[in-house]
């Protein structure tokens, strides 16, 4: 049953993310990105990460994608401008790499126990009854340092955006 859900979500994620780059109309691309975000959230739920699923929907689907759509509509991107003739070269390089990686990974998972190791960690996640509480506690104790660094990253991004967008810089001052 779990594999069935995983197969469904993974399949739709792969197809819709391919559509994001393949569709000609940028608005359709953005909408298939939305479909992808929803299915990623579904994938999180099958992993018992309900909080992450909710955040995924609120932040990505709710906020970021709406922003994308605004930008796409305001800029009025021409359909043809988005494509270059380089895709043939890219396909020529990527298809052999893809086949190679599939062969490697399918051959390897039988030889080693990496698949089993991943499954073993799953029950561990279910022991915690309330994963929002668990995330909060880990974030502010074990991962306090990276959490603070992340806040600095956001500070830099915010001030950077303001500096880049500021109308006139210096210039007249002496």
């Amino acid at each position: 049953m779990a594999y069935l859900f995983f197969g469904y979500f993974a399949g739709i994620i792969a197809i819709s993310s391919m559509l994001v780059v393949a569709l000609r109309n940028p608005v359709y691309s953005a909408l298939s990105l939305l479909v992808m975000f929803f299915h990623v959230a579904g994938l999180y739920i099958t992993l018992h990460a309900e909080f992450l699923a909710a955040v995924q929907l609120i932040v990505y689907a709710g906020a970021i994608l709406v922003l994308y759509l605004f930008v796409v509509m305001i800029l009025n991107v021409k359909e043809d401008d988005r494509y270059h003739s380089q895709w043939r070269i890219a396909a020529f390089i990527c298809v052999p790499l893809l086949i190679e990686s599939i062969v490697l990974l399918s051959g390897g998972s039988r030889a080693t126990t990496s698949g089993n190791r991943l499954l073993q960690t799953e029950p561990h996640g279910m022991v915690v009854p309330d994963n929002t509480l668990a995330i909060g506690q880990t974030l502010f104790s074990t991962y306090l340092f990276p959490f603070e660094v992340a806040s600095l990253v956001l500070l830099v991004a915010m001030i950077g955006a303001i500096v880049i967008a500021k109308r006139d810089i210096g210039g007249s001052e002496t």
Partner: peptide, 25 residues
């Protein structure tokens, strides 16, 4: 010595540099 912390450090450096590169507007 943690890959996630290292990644965040990299981003902090890179984001600052992206802005500094574009200062000569």
């Amino acid at each position: 010595v943690d890959l996630l912390t290292l990644y965040l450090g990299t981003e902090l450096m890179s984001l600052s540099l992206y802005v500094m590169v574009g200062l000569k507007r």
